[in-house]
Design a protein around this nucleic acid. Sequence first.
DNA 1: GTGAAAGCGCTAACAC
DNA 2: GTGTTAGCGCTTTCAC
Lengths: 338, 338
Amino acid sequence: MAGVRLQDVADHAGVSMKTVSNVVRHHPNVSPQMRARVQSAIDELGYRPNALGRRLATGRTGLLALAFADIRLPYFAELANLVAATASTSDARYRVLLEETGGTLDGERAVLNASESGLVDGMLFQPAIMTTSEIDERHGDIPIVLLGEGAAPPSVDRVMIDNEAAAMMATGHLVDLGRSRVAFLGHETTQLTATSQQRIEGYRRGLEHAGLSADPALLIATVETGAVSARAAVGAAIDAGLHFDGLVCRDDLAAIGALRALHERGVAVPHDVAVVGWDDTSFAATTYPSLTSIAPDTATLASMALEMLEERIAGFDGAGRHRLAPFQLTVRESAPFR
Amino acid sequence: MAGVRLQDVADHAGVSMKTVSNVVRHHPNVSPQMRARVQSAIDELGYRPNALGRRLATGRTGLLALAFADIRLPYFAELANLVAATASTSDARYRVLLEETGGTLDGERAVLNASESGLVDGMLFQPAIMTTSEIDERHGDIPIVLLGEGAAPPSVDRVMIDNEAAAMMATGHLVDLGRSRVAFLGHETTQLTATSQQRIEGYRRGLEHAGLSADPALLIATVETGAVSARAAVGAAIDAGLHFDGLVCRDDLAAIGALRALHERGVAVPHDVAVVGWDDTSFAATTYPSLTSIAPDTATLASMALEMLEERIAGFDGAGRHRLAPFQLTVRESAPFR
DNA sequence: GTGAAAGCGCTAACAC
DNA sequence: GTGTTAGCGCTTTCAC
């Protein structure tokens, strides 16, 4: 039965609302017999506490917004799964409201604007293109923690992995395999996102560190995110005569597209070209060949982010804390150990 | 500034709360000059309407729960994306609360139990293992629409595609290619879900329809959902001497695993074995070879479901309506046209 | 067109 | 240990 209110239960049991409330919330200060009496009234009436009333009174909703570009990208799906699982087992038992920005500036703005306040207690946001200053201006007073290597003003908390170091590791792994013409795949054709910048920088430093020079011709941009675009880009590069024997990909999706393009042209992986992906998403293990990939420790990343967010929600008001989550290189067939 | 209330704006502008409320909600009955005056008070104070207060008063939250097994499964990620996009553009501008059941009975129960009421206006739920009667008992009085081919009591709305017909189409496509030993991959090893039952039944009927008999040995079960398990199962089947020249997969993930296992054993796809996946998820186009796959019209499915749900939320109280969304077979390299 | 007051369902001081 | 009461911030009759 809907429409049963706390007051109804109180009347039915012949007690006050306060007592019913205590029973519902498992408050200790209730005598067992009273608890039993109230409980049976609850059961008889089929009472369900109304979340809204409770939340209005406490000021907390138990809801967290999780905002990023697109849930269809496997990395984000895995992140969402982890965040939801972690948040629901925290003391506060948060639930997750999904917000997709579409990877557009308007989408990111809409997420931060959310003209209504009070619906969510806090927000985890992975910006892709918004600038530091715009985030700073718009984030209002809702507790927020930023995810990933996008812009992050000093006032706001953020968790990411060290993208430069990871890209250096990926590049170094290929160099160790004896590859000397290592290409980078998957950055934007025009305006580079912070993610691409950092990964390319790490790739450059990885080459330099090995005494190799970075040939700008080896930067293969893609028109959009995803395997389809990567396949086209790699195909076009090969057809145009580009020669390379190693490939660092901006993400696993790009690597999948690359694998496909290489197959089609009879280029053997890893024999002719060794490939490293990024994110170590679940399907990296079952591509053919399976993908060597940078594996961010997303579980740690999620729990670090949630921890900081809960502190903010609890009222912590210090300067933004920028934390690094660990990562490793998962080695599989596409770029095996030497 | 947080903590600015409607009353504060009213005081500041020297009007009543009612007027401010009217302005905030763009109610027509406000004179332009009054509107301007109130608006400037709003801007000066940085007032943001509090969602909770509003929602308590109206009884609507603008939130929809979307519940299914696991967001990491590409089909569900694509569904979530579609539902969120469709719901946010409907008149009611719903936002989506993600609920994962983990594909377990406990998880499905937890989703339906949600001891608190009122947090979401309605729910879209894709059950995998709950029975019809249990769903009927537990769904309480929250408006709900079921997704997929799982159990669905007559009292509850549901949208799915015709799984038997789709499986027949997939099987028929392989038969048309001249395949006579068509296997089925990806059902559970023990208790079959409704999904597997229907797809296997369609597969059987597809074979019968072509005058072929269904050999039980050709049913290849997997220990769990996903490519890894499918790869192992197909590998084991081949190693055990199973011979087949066509393969209908329960989902694309199973197909990916199968592709991998076949590759490893030097079985050529589609030459030796033609493969059909299911869901036509985005990566089906870039596997090697690319996947022929059953493509449910998820956009239509999502909008049908949302439409029925909005009717329920609006108060419609008729019997459960069971609707079918369209599907087609997307033909690619793994099982091309003859 | 605008104002006053009564809720929406619950929690939390504070009193008993 | 239990009851009373005043909000939480907004919407919404109903007067004016």
